[in-house]
C-alpha cells in the first residue's frame, strides 16, 4: 500500500476454526493472506501476517475445541483476535518461551511441539496480547502494521 493517508476503508471478517480438524487447518490463514495480496500489501508484511495467523490457527486446531478469528483490516494495519473455547493456558509466560510445549506424543509425531509457535507469533507482530483462563479458553490478539515492509 502506498502513501500514508488514512482512508476509511475497512474490512471485517469472522473466520471459524474447528478444533482437531487438521485437514482444514490453515484455511483461515490462507484466506487472510489472499485478501492482503489483493489489497497490494507488501510481501514482507504478508509473510509476517501469514506466520502469526497460521501459528495461532494451528494452536486452536491442536489444543482447543473450537475457535474463531475476528479480523479487522484498515489501510494501515491488520488486527486479528483469535479466540477459542478450550483448555486454556496455565502459565502464559511459560507458554511464550521458546521450547515450552505440552504437546502430547500424537501431536509431536505430526511435527508439532517445538514450542516455537507462540514465539514465532511474537516475533512476527507489532503488538500482542494473550489472555487465557484454564478450563475456559484463550484469547490471542495481535496487530501488524503495513508500514514496515519494503515498498510500503
Amino acid at each position: 500500500m502506498s502513501g500514508g493517508s488514512d482512508s476509511e476503508e475497512k474490512i471485517h471478517m469472522q473466520l471459524p476454526i474447528r478444533g482437531g480438524d487438521f485437514s482444514k487447518a490453515g484455511e483461515a490463514s490462507s484466506k487472510i493472506k489472499n485478501i492482503l495480496k489483493q489489497l497490494g500489501v507488501s510481501p514482507a508484511v504478508i509473510k509476517r501476517v501469514a506466520i502469526a495467523c497460521f501459528e495461532s490457527e494451528i494452536n486452536i486446531v491442536a489444543y482447543a475445541n473450537k475457535g474463531q478469528f475476528s479480523v479487522d483490516i484498515t489501510t494501515g494495519e491488520i488486527r486479528v483476535l483469535a479466540k477459542d473455547e478450550g483448555p486454556g493456558i496455565e502459565c502464559v509466560e511459560m507458554a511464550m518461551m521458546e521450547g515450552f510445549s505440552t504437546a502430547p506424543p500424537e501431536l509431536r509425531e505430526m511435527g508439532f511441539g517445538a514450542g516455537m509457535g507462540l514465539p514465532n507469533i511474537k516475533k512476527a507482530v507489532d503488538w500482542i496480547k494473550i489472555e487465557s483462563q484454564v478450563g475456559v479458553g484463550t484469547e490471542l490478539e495481535f496487530k501488524i502494521l503495513f508500514g514496515g515492509g519494503e515498498n510500503g
Binding site: E55, I58, F112, G113, A114, G117, N120
Partner: peptide
C-alpha cells in the same frame, strides 16, 4: 526439518 514451526519460521 521435521518441526513444522521451525519450517514456518
Amino acid at each position: 526439518s521435521d518441526l513444522l514451526s521451525d519450517v514456518i519460521a
